[in-house]
Amino acid sequence: MTITTTAPANRAALLVLADGRFPAGGHAHSGGAEAAVAAGRLYDATSLEAFCRGRLDTAGLVAAALAAAAAAGVDPLLLDEAADARTPSPALRATARKLGRQMMRAARACWPSPVLDALAAARPRGAHQPVVLGVTASAAGLGPLDAAHAAAYEAVSGPATAAVRLLSLDPFDATAVLARLAPDLDRVAQQAVDSARLALDSDVDALPAASAPLLEIAAERHAAWPVRLFAS
């Protein structure tokens, strides 16, 4: 099987799926930004950019690859297992499943599909969000590259939006960070699709497993806070 990487006819569906206002619960999560602010590691636009660069090439790349592979037709249950293996923090595994469950609800309302139904039945408590995102993209008539772009963008747009609220950062500065990252988002999405193609021909070990130890440790600290602005 080959993966189509040309621009799809369905581009507007990608805008719907990748919109920050898509009702899948993402707005309640900071992607580790809240914990990084508390640790004094994220404090301005420059450190936000460094944070996003690191997150993009680790958690973002892995999410994009899982989403691309799911959109390309790799067994979502194997991808779900691969996502667990790439997430040592139980707090982050729980967050990914919660977001996956919320995305599944929105996805089934928007693009009803037997593949979504089957995944929802197999993982009633939620599959990892990027896997659901990939299957959703496919149900919406989108391809693996679209799914990868949506996942990669989400990996940095969440922290950038959260930083505006957490640091009272100028929204223009935060969005400028995202704009500067655009070429890297394209690169990561392409890398994700290339690995998804390999995974389709071999197995899920072909997908990247780039880890971000500080994100993992900070997520466990954050999950133990009694009061927090963001869920993760």
């Binding site: 994220l42 450190s47 660069r53 690191g54 090439d57 293996a85 040592p88 994100l215």
Partner: peptide, 25 residues
């Protein structure tokens, strides 16, 4: 036969973001 743990690291010159606040700081 099932994936239990899969962890990669790309560190040092040329690796994007590795010394930033998300990875090793």
């Amino acid at each position: 036969g099932r994936a239990l743990l899969d962890q990669g690291l790309a560190l040092g010159p040329g690796a994007p973001g590795w010394s930033g606040p998300a990875v090793l700081d």
